[in-house]
Design a protein around this nucleic acid. Sequence first.
RNA 1: GCCCCCUUCGUCUAGCGGUUAGGACGCUGCCCUUUCAAGGCAGAGAUCAGGGGUUCGAAUCCCCUAGGGGGCGCCA
Length: 483
Amino acid sequence: MRVRFAPSPTGHLHIGGARTALFNYLLAKKHNGTFILRIEDTDEDRSTAESTRSIFESMLWLGLNWDEGAMPDNKEKGAYGPYVQSVREAQGIYRKYADQLVREGNAFHCYCSPEELEESRRKALTEKRDPVYDGRCRRLTGDQRGAFEAQGRKPVVRFMMPKDGAVGWADLVHKEMKFENKVLSDFIIQKASGYPTYNFACVIDDHLMEITHVIRGDDHISNTPLQVHLYAAFGWQVPELGHLSMILGPDGTRLSKRHGATSVGEYRTQGYLPETMRNYLALLGWSNPESQQLFKKGELEEKFDLKGCQKSPAIFDPVKLDWMNGEYIRTLSREEFVGATGPYMDQFGLNVPLSGVPRADIVALEQEKCKLLAELPAKVEFFFKDPVYDQAAVDSTLKKPEVPAILKGVKEAYCALPEFKDVQIEAATRAFAKAGGFKAGQVFHPVRVALSGRTDGPTLFKMIEYLGKEESLKRLDKALALV
RNA sequence: GCCCCCUUCGUCUAGCGGUUAGGACGCUGCCCUUUCAAGGCAGAGAUCAGGGGUUCGAAUCCCCUAGGGGGCGCCA
């Protein structure tokens, strides 16, 4: 089995592309096949080297390592190269096959200008007719061609579509698919610039690279009949074809920028783990009979199956994504978590806590409840700089008549502590509460707000320990001044 | 306008002629608990888009309708 992911480098790798790449990758792993990365940069205007670089980076981050194909720094690996279509074009690969089709009468030169085509397309639409190419250049005489050439026109090459009959294929996810030829038009296979179009280059390369299974998005369904015609014209075997359902935004329309983050890179910077993205994306349009949600390392590769692919589109659910990221964050070792959060802490300059304890100790306090790495700095900031008192917390917790006495008492108790560790702090706090006739929570809550400025936070006595004696006493005074 | 695809809890989905229509996220309640999470338990939530058939029996098979999505580029 040989499968490929063939992005066009006109932007970052987005969620839909990543899902397609993932499914191809999983399929290859499952069947011990080869996963190929081919760059389809036949859009001369929009393709950029920066996009290619960005796509590589996202693929690698997701762990979708490919066995063959284009590689960073203009390198490649594999015996079926080159794997970049612009490079293949420069070698004349596509022209050779386009010439063959013309020679054999399956394609023809068309001299219509883009403007002329656009005009007849618009006219057809306003007259509520199908905007299909009318075949006007199909049978040009030598004189007519000469006249066009004399005008300086450069022809495109069009495929000669049969007027009757139909094409079809047994789609791996949709089952039988069929299109009447009469609704298909003489599509362009080679642009005036000599570059191949997507539909043409794709077929030539899939054949030459001996791709056995083409798995791509549903948005390619209407291209498929054209491609099937091409395979037939060359007498080539059509690979297995499968079309994955689209990924939609929460409002049911195609996922786009207005739904929020759409590129893999954006999710990365927000602090989602690659494992989360792989697992979540796998569940969009695929499931196994057990409706299993979480997959251990290597388990997806083992369990993935095209049979579990959904035909209907799936709506991307950021809430479930967050839940899943929390699940994966909890599976990280303390060291992994600390390492992963490092850049986020650095970004806010949270390097050395006021008490001087290791930053890792502080960070580790939050691992259990962290859903997004990027939200960590805000949760632990008060260990590094003066707390920002949340007004709602102050009002609800500190504005009680008994609070001044409590804070004062706690301060005295802490002052007297020879060793400032969580066990001693807890004992002292409880002893004070008992002596003063307070319920534990009655004391704990104001102390938390006084020290951190918030009602939520890490486990209290570890928090106080890591804050340090000096800083804790200082903040108790500060809070006292507030009430 | 034409072509194609899709339709089970709010969302992701299981189901493949006979099920109390199952799971997950989210939601509600309880337990745990110094807070927030996490965890445990319990619960609400789908007359299977609607309408016709076929059948003893339909979410499952067929037809129609509606809604949604995709495409109709010298973009991919």
